[in-house]
């Protein structure tokens, strides 16, 4: 596997997790391509124009995108789930268009010169985020999020602040997408707004749907398959949207929870009894 493919796979896994984290609270985001763009450009500006340290730039871009995401998602999160889908689609367009019209970052021509990302950075981050998600998957918080996903209103009546949980998850997902964007721009050297169009957001969501929405491994499987397979099978690349679309449709009909549909349990009562 080439360095580039390894890198792309890693970025797509991070992006898929960024969607998964938002999905943990039951919200679907089509804005993660936009947050990736925010991170890519912000980190680029920080390192190239402000001379900031690479890691500090990534962290700042991530935190910034998280705050922006939380502020923008708040009005939609108070209402029904469908509204959030609309708002996130809107965000994707707004972010892309704003970048296209900002001469400071090169507008439609794009920005160039970012360097510093290696596969070690990408896969190191995957290890860290993966460990975090695994930790989460065994926690009380995961149990509460699972309850929110199953029945928001009942979960709220048990005392869970559902809006707060959703906002934090949304901000965390936006943050991870932005950091992935920062890594992306400092690997690609050159970026332009077209790299982050609405299709990026859509594809990432579909990676997660394909792999499975109920555990942290699903997004990894979905993103890996859809990144690596078209490269390995000659001729498949040009039919990617067609094949991908058909696979998603069939999968939703026969396995609506994705390939890895299993939900991980947060506790086992019996093991505790025998102990």
């Amino acid at each position: 596997m080439s360095q580039d493919l390894l890198f792309l796979t890693g970025i797509n896994i991070l992006m898929a997790w960024s969607v998964y984290i938002i999905l943990l609270s039951g919200s679907l985001s089509f804005a993660n391509g936009g947050f990736m763009a925010l991170g890519a450009y912000a980190a680029g500006v920080f390192t190239m124009k402000w001379g900031m340290n690479f890691y500090a730039a990534l962290a700042l871009a991530g935190v910034g995108a998280g705050i922006v995401g939380a502020l923008l998602a708040y009005p939609a999160l108070r209402t029904r789930g469908v509204y959030l889908i609309l708002v996130t689609i809107g965000l994707s367009f707004i972010i892309q268009t704003l970048i296209q019209n900002t001469d400071y970052v090169g507008g439609v021509r794009g920005m160039t010169g970012m360097m510093g990302t290696t596969n070690w950075h990408v896969w190191g981050l995957i290890a860290i985020v993966g460990a975090g998600l695994y930790w989460l998957s065994r926690s009380h918080l995961q149990r509460q999020l699972d309850a929110v996903r199953e029945d928001e209103r009942v979960a709220a009546s048990l005392g869970f602040d559902v809006v707060y949980l959703k906002i934090v998850c949304f901000a965390a997902g936006a943050c991870l997408a932005a950091i992935a964007g920062g890594l992306y721009s400092h690997y690609m050297v050159f970026i332009n707004p077209d790299h982050f169009n609405i299709f990026v957001s859509i594809y990432v969501v579909l990676y997660v749907v394909l792999g499975g929405v109920n555990n942290l491994w699903g997004p990894v499987v979905g993103a890996s398959i859809m990144t690596i397979l078209p490269e390995l099978v000659r001729g498949l690349a040009s039919f990617r949207p067609l094949v991908f679309g058909a696979v998603i449709i069939v999968l939703l009909l026969v396995r609506p929870n994705g390939l890895l549909a299993m939900r991980l349990r947060t506790l086992k009562a019996d093991r505790e009894r025998s102990a």
Partner: peptide, 25 residues
């Protein structure tokens, strides 16, 4: 919560950390 276990249904509602969900992490 049908897809969760019986014990999880009860455990998720326990008062501990209900007001500060992220502390349980």
């Amino acid at each position: 919560f049908k897809r969760m276990t019986v014990a999880e249904n009860v455990a998720c509602a326990l008062r501990d950390y209900a007001d500060r969900p992220f502390l349980s992490m």
